[in-house]
């Protein structure tokens, strides 16, 4: 029974998770090194990777700062009523339930060129939809819960005791956060950041809708893969996908490491 179950699990993992990754790698090398390098060094690939990188950096920064603060408020704040806290807490999960395509649609509906807000921004010279700001907004929306959901349980678990102790010893909020709270939540924040990076790197649906997938302007790595597949340019698609997959596997390893640190502390 034991052997059967282990065997079944291993086979399933192999078929579902390992074989596909290998297949991508093989696909990328289909036409040898030149095919792979050619797929990667196309100007559109480089530009797409640059856009993706930019989005990842901006999104991760913003969501880390605001995510940590929101977690602190939702767990500790006394200025928020208990009912209100519960409501906000359940609202945090909403992006999990929203299809990325719908997330993109929301932004188009609110800030698209035909809307009042969009027109206002447009008049001020800022394009949101079919431009970088919209793509960042969409990715922010999609990745927002990841960090909060990692940090909140840890804050709940460590309790307010150490922070109260710091307060009675004369330490104000800022010092207390950096010297007492931060060392306890550090690794959960790192873990949440890794999840955020992974998701921001791979976001597709929401970005596709908001960006319009304009070559050399709003095309990201994932939307480029999509376009290459649609154009039957499989080797190029595989090359970009392999880079993304390598990035994900790297993040995965980092995630495992962060998790082990998280458990120690």
């Amino acid at each position: 029974m034991r052997r059967l179950l282990i065997g079944l699990t291993a086979v399933f993992f192999g078929l579902l998770l390992v074989v596909p990754v290998i297949r991508i790698a093989m696909g990328a090398w289909n036409e040898g090194w030149t095919g792979f390098a050619g797929g990667l060094t196309r100007p559109e690939t480089l530009h797409a990777l640059w856009v993706t990188g930019l989005i990842v950096v901006v999104v991760t920064l913003l969501n880390t700062v605001f995510g940590v603060m929101l977690s602190l408020y939702l767990v500790r704040a006394t200025w928020l009523g208990k009912k209100l806290k519960q409501l906000l807490n359940s609202l945090v999960d909403l992006p999990f339930a929203v299809s990325p395509v719908i997330g993109g649609l929301m932004i188009v509906l609110l800030l698209g060129p035909e809307t009042a807000l969009g027109a206002m921004f447009n008049w001020a010279g800022i394009d949101i939809v079919y431009a970088l700001p919209g793509m960042i907004l969409a990715t922010l929306f999609v990745t927002f819960p990841l960090l909060v959901r990692e940090v909140m349980p840890v804050l709940q678990e460590i309790g307010a005791g150490q922070e109260e102790a710091a307060a009675t010893l004369g330490s104000y909020a800022w010092t207390t956060f950096w010297r007492v709270t931060w060392p306890s939540i550090r690794w959960s924040v790192v873990y949440g950041v890794v999840l955020t990076v992974a998701r921001a790197l791979g976001e597709f649906g929401a970005v596709l809708v908001v960006s319009g997938n304009i070559l050399f302007k709003t095309q990201t790595a994932t939307t480029l893969v999509y376009q290459d597949v649609e154009n039957f340019n499989l080797t190029a698609a595989n090359s970009v996908a392999l880079v993304l997959a390598a990035g994900s596997v790297g993040l995965l390893l980092f995630m495992e490491w962060a998790k082990s640190r998280k458990e120690v502390h």
């Binding site: 309790g159 005791g161 150490q162 109260e164 102790a165 710091a166 307060a167 009675t168 010893l169 004369g170 330490s171 104000y172 010297r179 007492v180 060392p183 306890s184 502390h265």
Partner: peptide, 19 residues
């Protein structure tokens, strides 16, 4: 605020800074 009251507080489960 507690910071300015000049008190010492020993908590039930001590709330030592564990790091």
């Amino acid at each position: 605020p507690p910071q300015e009251r000049g008190i010492g507080f020993v908590f039930q489960n001590y709330a030592l800074f564990k790091h």
